[in-house]
Design a protein around this nucleic acid. Sequence first.
DNA 1: AAGATAGTCGTTTTT
DNA 2: CGACTATCTT
Length: 731
Amino acid sequence: MDVSPILDQLNDAQRQAVSAPAGNQLILAGAGSGKTRVLVHRIAWLIQVERISPFSIMAVTFTNKAAREMRGRIEELLGLNPRGMWVGTFHGIAHRLLKAHWQEAKLPQNFQILDSDDQLRLIKRVSQGLQLDEERWPAKQTQWFINHNKDEGLRPDYIQTHGDPHQETLVRIYRAYEEACQRGGMVDFGELLLRAHELWLNNPRLLQHYQDRFPFVLVDEFQDTNTIQYAWLRVLAGDRCAVTAVGDDDQSIYGWRGAKIENIQRYSQDFQGVETVRLEQNYRSTRTILDAANAVIENNFGRLGKTLRTDGDDGEKISLYAGFNEQDEARFIVERIEEWQRKGKSLESCAILYRSNAQSRILEEALLRESVPYRIYGGQRFYERLEIKNALAYMRLIINRNDDAAFERVINTPTRGIGSKTVDGIRLFAREQGCSMWDASEQMVSNKGLSARAANSVAAFCALLNELDNQTQELSLEKIASAVINSSGLIEFHEKEKGEKGQARVENLQELINACRAFNPENDDLSPMEEFLDGAALDAGEAQADEFEDAVQLMTLHTAKGLEFPLVFMAGVEEGLFPHRMSAEEPGRLEEERRLCYVGITRAMEKLYISYAESRRMYGSETFNNVSRFVKEIPDALIEEVRLKTAITRPVSFGSSYGDSAQSRPRLGQRKLAGRLSDDGGDTGLSLGQRVLHPSFGEGTILHFEGNKIQINFDDVGSKWLIAGAKLDPL
DNA sequence: AAGATAGTCGTTTTT
DNA sequence: CGACTATCTT
């Protein structure tokens, strides 16, 4: 066997990981160290050198995107599609198991997946059903409670309430929610994992079957596994399976979602003879960038230890810019991007990363002003959009009339005169009869259990669905979607919505038909529509329009994990924002913020800009933040502070409230600076060296004017840059 | 059933 | 501040 295609072009550590003898292995893969490559080559090695059948291999990822990429790259390397291999997300694989063994899992064959929005609605209804005050038991919090416990593998019976009445009520809702899910054949994300785990624990023969089938399991992003995922893997692995765990403890940024960074350490103890390989050679960033990243992450304790190295050049220093407010910061970034563009570089190669989504608006405005195209990642996902979920609900009802969640969603969408009172009545009747809302509706229509008006509307709705079902029996998925969207009245409903919103929604519905056309069914046991709907629930769909235009990329630091860009801006690197004030207190959470910073820095290939704003409007009021502690953790030698030396072109506006001081005479030698005019044409009356009073900082002396900012040395709080318009009273 | 209005709340979000 | 929700109004 010629192993060169598999091992060539790998460094020693990568080669060691790829060609290790079959067994448990932990691959600690630093940022940019070729992690996916090693994973893919390891699989190729198993198949081609160790002669392992693809049927014996399972590869688990966290995102659909990662799963797709892995499948694609394996195919590329092997030159063929490794049939029989399972590649998917934890949730996707759990779903597959439950679909295959629905009876053992005690689920209806056509069980539905609840996304978090569906889940929240259901929790609200369940809480109402228990007569609980929504103020005291906010559905959001209950949802967090339920999901948190499911992530920990805890069913209601196993939760320790210690007699705390608050906890006990939450457990009661949890229990009622579970019953509602079971009644309606609905499964949320956490439940998929929990059920799949229990499926094996309760069916030893089934477990045996899968243990025999998958002697090789590979897991990507191991640092992001939560308790139930780890437990599931542990059960599958038994004591014969070889597990390859790939991860980076320094890039664990989802602890707040239940991910357990400790799972990496635990793995070495729980699994037999784990061989550890560190991938520390970085192929992405300049030495300067890596040194900065290493210096920051060194401040965390209890790391498994790993230092990124490169053979590359030092590269440029990291530029640090102190904007005097968020607008100034945004303007600075946009100017640097235009500069980059003038050098003939693409916009696609630039990313602006920020801690929280709220920061994107100011950046967008600045980009818009200069007509720089941009693309924002994150935000609402395609299959989570209201109009899409409505259309899908019709499709779900075609398959299964007893899908109450879908029923409630569209019985009056578009509005057809069925108010909440009627729906409440149907729900109540369904509960009493122990039947679905669909059945309840039919009964109430024939029993005269409804007002004539309501009965009419409900009957019409039922007829519409029955007709859709009949019409579409033999049609392709695309035609079904098209029929649903057109006959349901959803298009007209959204068309008359005012503003651009309606237009966008109609386009999205059109896009849904396109997605149906492009859909490739793979599972013979399911109808294409069933398969499509399951897929839609598990894959949010990276609907990003305008993929073709060259555009700057805007996203949160979390979203940027796994990506790389030649030019990176980290914006808003301030105390309070990053690290976020909610995380700054607890050491564990602060360390996670630091890992996020590490992730951010290591996204940059050639050049990194870090910026912050000395003053920022947050929640409507102005806040003054210091530069982030993380910046101070970067050695000075790697940083170059940017001070704009641009000519003062813009007039300064300190407001017109100083009209009376227009006569105050600038002192000699300061005429040029002090004589600038404010926007409304009046002299600001402020001059260098002048004493002023600020409402929060007290008295100070004006040190500098620059652009439309002003530096003042305050007696109490030291020197600060303020914006034009700051409330300054000349003394 | 749409529109207006008051009140709330405010990190990050793989599935 | 401003986006989103719940509630009230016509």
